[in-house]
Simulated scan of single mutants.
Amino acid sequence: MVQVRIWGSLTALTDGQREVEVEAGTLRELLDGLGARYPGLRPQLERGVSVAIDGLVYNDSWFTPIREDSEVVLLARLKGG
């Protein structure tokens, strides 16, 4: 199981939980697991989120591996210009 820290306004979509656990080995599995467990989070996941894994931020890098001891943070999509 991977422990995921939910950041900011996204906690409203996880029943107020700031940390959740999901069975996942890749970023895609993580997002699929979160969407299945928290249906209210699905629309945001479909619009796009950013996921920080061990300090690096990923967007749409579906096959990025996640270890059980990785630090994982789910954030609203980070945009830059």
Rank of each mutant, 00 (worst) to 15 (best):
Pro43Ile: 07
Ala76Phe: 09
Arg67Trp: 04
Ala76Leu: 15
Val72Asp: 06
Pro39Cys: 10
Val73Gly: 03
Gly8Asp: 07
Thr11Glu: 02
Arg77Lys: 15
Asp32His: 05
Asn59Met: 03
Gly35Phe: 00
Gln44Cys: 13
Glu68Val: 13
Ile66Thr: 09
Pro65His: 13
Tyr58Asp: 00
Pro39Ser: 14
Glu29Thr: 15
Ala12Pro: 02
Leu74Thr: 09
Leu34Asn: 00
Leu75Pro: 04
Arg42Lys: 00
Trp62Phe: 10
Leu30Lys: 12
Thr64Glu: 12
Ala24Cys: 02
Glu71His: 08
Gly35Tyr: 01
Phe63Arg: 07
Asp15Leu: 01
Arg42Ala: 10
Val49Trp: 02
Ser70Phe: 03
Leu10Met: 11
Trp7Gly: 12
Leu78Gln: 15
Gly81Gln: 05
Ser50Ala: 09
Leu74Gln: 00
Asp15Phe: 08
Trp62Lys: 07
Asp54Lys: 06
Arg67Lys: 14
Ala24Asn: 05
Val20Thr: 06
Leu45Gln: 08
Leu56Cys: 11
Gln3Tyr: 00
Val49Thr: 10
Val51Pro: 08
Ile53Phe: 02
Trp62Glu: 01
Leu34Cys: 09
Val22Thr: 10
Gly80Ser: 15
Val4Ala: 09
Leu30His: 04
Asp54Asn: 15
Ala76Asn: 10
Leu56Tyr: 13
Glu46Val: 14
Leu78Val: 15
Tyr58Gln: 02
Pro39Trp: 13
Leu30Asn: 04
Ala24Lys: 03
Leu31Tyr: 03
Arg67Ile: 01
Ala12Glu: 11
Tyr38Leu: 09
Thr11Pro: 00
Glu46Asp: 11
Glu71Ala: 14
Ser50Arg: 03
Asp54Gly: 15
Arg28Met: 04
Leu75Glu: 06
Val72His: 09
Val49Phe: 13
Phe63Leu: 12
Asp32Asn: 13
Arg37Cys: 07
Val22Met: 03
Thr64Ala: 03
Thr64Asn: 08
Leu34Asp: 05
Thr11Lys: 12
Gly55Val: 11
Gly8Thr: 08
Glu71Asp: 15
Thr14Leu: 13
Pro39Gly: 14
Ala52Val: 01
Thr64Met: 10
Val57Cys: 12
